[in-house]
Amino acid sequence: MNIFRLIGDLSHLAAIIILLLKIWKSRSCAGISGKSQILFAIVFTTRYLDLLTSFISLYNTCMKVIYIGCAYATVYLIYMKFRATYDGNHDSFRVEFLVVPVGGLAVLINHDFSFLEILWTFSIYLESVAILPQLFMISKTGEAETITTHYLFCLGLYRALYLFNWIWRFYFEGFFDMIAIVAGVVQTVLYCDFFYLYVTKDGKGYRFSI
């Protein structure tokens, strides 16, 4: 564990909690892309199946359980409890254009042609594009609640910090994973436009044109 990965994980956890609390407290999921949340639930499910097969550490296990639990709770709130506030018209990104190519790529480019490894690779590729429906929805509505932008900032920051974690681990531990790094770079680049808007327009509401 290094400082970049620790802060990255805490930033990721903060994003997940911010979103869950925002929906729960405001009893509304307006402006939130349910499709992105479904993709994140799939990302965690396919990546954390090793919860059943191997124990790494208490921290690792707890965080995985929290991530999966919050992801499904968020999907439940959006599509069941507060479905009346779900803005389906603006959440119109065709996720099949993400899942199918990512699935194909995971089968073609992976480290090991085994079930768990392909699922892990699929989850890494899918995570890099899972935020697209959300960014697309914001660009369609042209605005985002302040709390939503904080959610996106923490979410984008987490993988950016992971890039530094991978540099750290390459330098000090002498190994790296090209699949995770390339996907992590793509994921972080997708947030760049948002990061710029977030930093330059902080404070009084947002008019986005991502």
Binding site: S54, I56, A180
Partner: peptide
């Protein structure tokens, strides 16, 4: 392999 070490990450 080398990359399996990455499996301790979230």
């Amino acid at each position: 392999q080398l990359h399996n070490k990455l499996k301790d990450e979230l």
